[in-house]
């Protein structure tokens, strides 16, 4: 295997008192689709900003496409494509004009520009809308155009920071179809962040990040297999009593998540009859789910991703404000 597309060693970023990234290590192989999964405020965007040369690390080092992000900013910039959470299109220009602007800024050879524009527009299904002003585009179309633009200069690594944030489920699914189709035709490493578990499933490997630290890195399958347990959620007439009885009588540690008594056991389906025998409280509903990435997240961090976002992790706006200083 050639040199890794992204290599990170001991990367740390502090904003005053807040430690946003606490010494992370990462290797992303060339051609890989790598997902960075974690709640808002976990340090995903900060890490991406450092990798894209938009922020400086407080300590540690990182290289992208073989170039150090702190020393060779221009070399790194010309080899990466970026799609940010916030839109960065000029809506008073047409799709084509936005693409041409990008191509000129990134030094795409003139003789190649036209064909490359045709290619990327085709990839995201915007060929017949290419001469429309972007302000007439829907949210999903804009995001597709940004992805096309990120690919225009044939980058080595494409960074997608929450590529589907703020889009409705149907549009999100469509965007993912385009992202996955890319891999068949583009020689590009994709590095994306998300806090949607189901999106992380599409990645070759994912890193779970929480409170600025990477708690696990592996393929989604391996991460789920490592959990080995099913998740059981029950609704009862007395949740507190249920938690206590589960602990006393079945030696199962349960906790309240999303308003339900939640616990993990191997072979969840065969556990259910024992549940009814052992508990004296009334059980209204039982749900048994095969391990998901959400369970993986919970296994490593002790909370669901939704708990984490409601908890006291630093709010991303605070980090943003601190970063502006």
């Amino acid at each position: 295997m050639a040199e890794p597309a992204v290599q990170v060693r001991g990367l740390t970023k502090t904003f005053g008192e807040i430690q946003a990234v606490r010494g992370i290590d990462l290797d992303v192989a060339t051609g890989e689709m790598f997902g960075f999964l974690g709640p808002n405020g976990a340090g995903k965007t900060t890490t991406i900003k450092i990798l894209c040369t938009l922020a400086e690390a407080s300590a540690g080092s990182a290289s992208v496409a073989g170039y150090d992000v702190a020393r060779h900013t221009s070399a790194v910039r010309s080899r990466i494509g970026l799609v940010f959470q916030e839109p960065t299109l000029d809506t008073y220009l047409t799709a084509e004009q936005n693409l041409r602007f990008h191509g000129e800024m990134y030094g795409v050879p003139r003789e190649r520009m036209r064909r490359r524009m045709d290619e990327v527009l085709e990839k995201v299904g915007l060929t017949d809308r290419r001469r429309d002003l972007v302000r007439k585009y829907s949210g999903g179309m804009r995001r597709r155009l940004e992805i096309a633009r990120g690919l225009l200069h044939t980058p080595t690594v494409l960074f997608l920071d929450e590529p589907t944030i703020g889009l409705d489920p149907q549009t999100r699914a469509a965007i993912w179809d385009y992202i996955r189709a890319l891999r068949a035709t583009e020689e590009v490493t994709v590095f994306l962040t998300t806090h949607y578990m189901e999106e992380a499933e599409y990645c070759d490997r994912i890193a779970i990040i929480d409170n600025g630290e990477i708690v696990a890195v592996d393929t989604p399958e391996a991460l789920k297999a490592a959990i080995g347990a099913d998740r059981v959620q029950i609704a009862t007439s007395d949740d507190a009593a249920a938690v206590a009885q589960l602990s006393e009588r079945l030696e199962v540690e349960a906790a309240m998540h999303d308003g339900m008594v939640t616990f993990s056991v191997p072979g969840g389906a065969s556990f259910v009859p024992r549940l009814f025998q052992a508990l004296s409280v009334e059980i209204d509903t039982v749900t048994v789910t095969r391990p998901s990435l959400d369970d993986v997240f919970m296994a490593y961090t002790g909370r669901t991703i939704r708990d984490a976002e409601q908890g006291n992790a630093p709010h991303p706006l605070q980090l943003l404000a601190a970063g502006r200083r």
Binding site: S78, R112, T154, R183, T185, E187
Partner: peptide, 20 residues
């Protein structure tokens, strides 16, 4: 890792004149 079908035309144009 999965293998992907590359578009040879994209690889050929990796060398750009940037920075001059």
């Amino acid at each position: 890792m999965t293998t992907t079908t590359r578009d040879p035309s994209t690889a050929a144009h990796r060398h750009r004149t940037v920075g001059g």
